[in-house]
Structure formats: C-alpha cells, structure tokens
Design a binder for these strands. Structure first.
Length: 428
RNA sequence: GCCUCGGUAGUGUAGCGGCCUAUCAUACGGGCCUGUCGAGCCCGUGACACGGGUUCAAAUCCCGUCCGAGGCGCCA
C-alpha cells in the first residue's frame, strides 16, 4: 500500500499507510497510543485491545515504523490526525536511552545537541532554521540571476604562498603544500578580466583563526559577487537588493517555519541607510569614546553605532589600513577607501568595495601591506591585459550562516550550521 | 593568544569540607488505569571527568591533565 504523508491525511483516504518516527508512546491497560512524526507533521496511532502485541510494548522512542489502518474522520486526538491501526511494522528500532532526547521538556546543551545532531534536527524548530536558510539563499540566487550574474565555482584548494591576514589551513597536495581558500576574492576578480562581467559564488570558505565566540565558524558558506564596470555604490545597491530578495523569499515560502522558530521578521525598505566611517568616529567622540582611525570598531563601539539604526545599514569609507590590498583608495583622500560594510545593528554581515584595477597601483598596495607581489603573479597577470574597473562584496567573517543568525535573532552561530566547525569541533 | 567560568545518572540540574550509602525534574524498567494527549498515581534502576595532594574526613579545598562554555583579541 502506498504511503501517505501525515500532512496529507484527509477524509478522502480512509485506508492509509503512514510512516515515520515514534515521538511519544502512551500505554494504558487496553489501548496504546503512538505519536508518529514524519517530515510533514504529527498524527496519533491508536492500537486497541487485541491488536496490541507484546513487542509493541518494547518500542522505543524515535524508532521508525509504518502503520496501516483507518484514518479516523473526526480525530478524538488533540493531535488532530488519528489513525486506528490494523497493522504495525517496525522498520528499525532506536536504541535506548537516547543520547539526546529531542522532545524531553529539559533542554540540552548546545554541545550535546551538536554531538547528536541527527537527533537534534528532528525537532521542527531546529530543522526550520535550515529550511529558512535554504529559502534565504534561493531568494538571493534568484535575484542575482535576474541581474545577469553567472554562478561560478572557484578552487577551494589554493597555493597562496603568503599569509596576508587570516590564517589558512595547510593541506598536503601531492608534492606541494597548499591551503584551503578563505575567500574566492582573487578568482572572482580574474573572472572579471575574463569577461564574465558579473559573477557570484556560494561556497565554503575556511579560516584557521583560533577564535572562540558565538559568531565565528572556521568553515562557513560565503556568498560573494563581483561586477565589472562598476563601483562601490553599484555593489551596495546589489547587496541591499539581494538581501531584501532573500528575506522576501523567506517571508513568501517559510511562514510556518518562522512560526516554529518563533521569530517574526519584516522587510526593510531600500536603500538602507549609509553612514561613513568618519561619521561613526564622530558619534563615538560624542559619547566620550575617541576612536583611533587606524583601528577597527570594537564590539562595544559597534553597539553604540548600531543603536542608532533599526536594522540594516552601511558603514562606508573605511580607512585603507583596515582594508585588504585590493580595495580602491578614495581619490579625494587616499587614507580612506571606496569600501563598505553591511551591518545589522552591532553585527557585521558583509564587506565590499570598489577594487583596484590598475596593476601598478595593485603592486603598490601589496607592498604597502607587506606582501610580495610575486606571490600573486597569477592574479596580477589578469590585470595587465585589460581589466575593467570593478567592485563586489563577500563575507569576510561568516556569510550565509551569520545572515541566518541575524535574521532569526539566534544567540549562537552554531545553530545555523548543520555540522559546525569551530575551534575544537571537527566531528560529527 | 589572553581573561573568566564550568565538568554530578541518558538528558538538564541541586549540593560547594562531616547532615551526601548525593537533590529535583525528565527519561528508562515494573505495576495500576479502553482514549490518553506536558497523561496520572505507586515502586524501582541509574551519576560526583581523570590523576595526584591537603585533611581525622573531599562531589566540595589545592595542583596537574583532558573536555567544554562565554568574553576579548585575531578575522587579504
């Protein structure tokens, strides 16, 4: 008999076969109730009197089984859906005790949850995070496609011989040493020279930073774009629209999951507010916190700045000392750059900028950052044979996981990664 | 890398020198109960991360190891 999804149970099908996981068992003298869960919902299985066999008393929670029986029209169960069982088949039992009981009233630590993620994700509010994340990304993808961006895949194993900023994970590559890429930056720029004009990439990025916070991961999903014949203002416009498109898609597709997570989100109108780095410094001075222009804002300072905004906003015009070599200096004042960060209150989401496209200036910038241009010959070469002015953005810190975290107001980035990689965790 | 805090039954916790052969909840096992639905009631099983030290006495204090959490820093 064909399986019916629990969510599809209706009066129309009175004989049904449902399959799923055992969420609860309630045993009375002459009646046995099993709350069965599949990906679409819950229903109650009712097994009466003679139908109860001894093995049924041994069924453990979270076991997988199928039941056939009559779909009761007016379910007496408060679960709404109820099947009066005529045959029950255990497909695969679950061991007891469970290392993590997803449906116990007691909440488990994040560590216990991550160690037993396959059980943790059986909760619909935990699964919902990933449905929302998927929907968010789909909305961003659809938007970028509509703007003629080409989705690309660039190498994650790279030969970068230097350590400019973030630490890289070293890997053996046959006879050579290689690294896991921390950003598709160099490759997406090369593709601009190649004439792609507009590219985007969604892929893993790796940072070997020994940070230990609730907002960093060592492996995350970066969403990056690069666009030719464009400047930082063009890139900001694409970014705010892409983020909005993602959120709009979540609102359109995932209202039930938002309810499950218990978070109401709304669409912020574009354009998002812009504030310059210098203006931020003025705000801090006004609060008696003079800020050194050579330094990034501390979490505390970002809180002060973020408090002035409802949600998303851009901080523009960052000092060149705080920005990577490929960032275009501001022609009016080269101490600053044509750059921006997208912020949500005190949290940084995305960094972007107009890029340097002149190979001579690029070499200068390498030297100014203490890097050897020769180590980047494959990259600079692409600038010497017709590189258009270009701009783009990407995720210097976290990316898709952080955006999901911010959107759902989650307290730990690890909630948004199925199998997070952090300072100490590489399993599961 | 720095700082702070912590590791007690399957899970989450109380206890913080002798009252601990360790609390409570939940889970698990058994019993009662034809309809429960956070089921209820009764009974039961189950734990002090590891090693060393102080003390008449250590879950409790000290040292080390391992594991973890949070904050800061780092974060082409």
């Amino acid at each position: 008999m064909e399986r019916t999804f629990i969510g599809d149970l209706s009066i129309a099908n009175s004989r049904v076969r449902v399959c799923g996981w055992v969420q609860e068992i309630r045993r009375l003298k002459n009646i046995l109730f099993i709350i069965l869960r599949d990906s679409t919902g819950l229903c109650q299985l009712t097994i009466k009197g003679d139908m109860i066999e001894p093995w049924m008393d041994q069924i453990q929670r979270e076991s997988v089984l199928c039941a056939e029986g009559e779909n009761i029209k007016d379910g007496i169960s408060k679960a709404g859906r109820e099947v009066s069982v005529t045959s029950l088949e255990l497909l695969n039992g679950a061991r007891s005790p469970l290392p993590l009981a997803p449906f116990d009233p007691v909440k488990a630590d994040i560590e216990t949850r991550l160690n037993n993620r396959f059980l943790d994700l059986r909760r619909k509010d935990h699964l919902a995070i990933f449905r929302i994340k998927s929907s968010l990304l789909y909305g961003i993808r659809k938007f970028l496609h509509s703007q003629n961006f080409i989705e690309v895949q660039t190498p994650k194993v790279v030969a970068s011989a230097t350590e400019g900023g973030a630490d890289l994970f070293a890997v053996k590559y046959f006879e050579s040493n290689a690294y896991l890429n921390q950003s598709p930056q160099l490759y997406k720029e090369i593709l601009i020279s190649a004439g792609f004009e507009r590219v985007f990439e969604v892929g893993p990025a790796f940072r070997a930073e020994k940070h230990n916070t609730t907002r960093h991961l060592n492996e995350f999903t970066s969403v990056d774009i690069e666009m030719g014949f464009s400047d930082h203002n063009d890139a900001m416009a694409v970014l705010e629209q892409a983020v909005s498109a993602g959120i709009a898609n979540v609102l359109a597709e995932r209202s039930l999951d938002l309810t499950a997570v218990g978070k109401a989100i709304s669409l912020q109108k574009t354009p998002f507010p812009r504030i310059s780095f210098s203006e931020c410094c003025d705000i801090l001075s006004g609060q008696g916190q003079d800020h050194n222009v050579e330094e990034d804002f501390s979490p505390e300072e970002l809180k002060i700045i973020g408090d002035r905004f409802e949600g998303f906003y851009f901080i523009t015009g960052w000092p060149s000392s705080l920005r990577p070599f490929y960032t275009m200096p501001d022609q009016k004042d080269p101490q600053f750059t044509n750059s921006f960060d997208l912020q949500y209150r005190e949290k940084e989401i995305t960094s972007g900028a107009q890029r340097v496209h002149d190979p001579e200036l690029l070499k200068e910038r390498f030297l100014a950052k203490g890097l050897n241009p020769e180590d980047f010959d494959f990259y600079i070469k692409a600038f010497e044979y017709g590189m258009p002015p270009h701009a783009g953005w990407g995720h210097p810190v976290i990316g898709l996981e952080r955006l999901t975290m911010i959107l759902l107001d989650l307290q730990n980035i690890r909630e948004t990664s199925l199998f997070p990689r952090d300072r100490t965790r590489i399993k599961p």
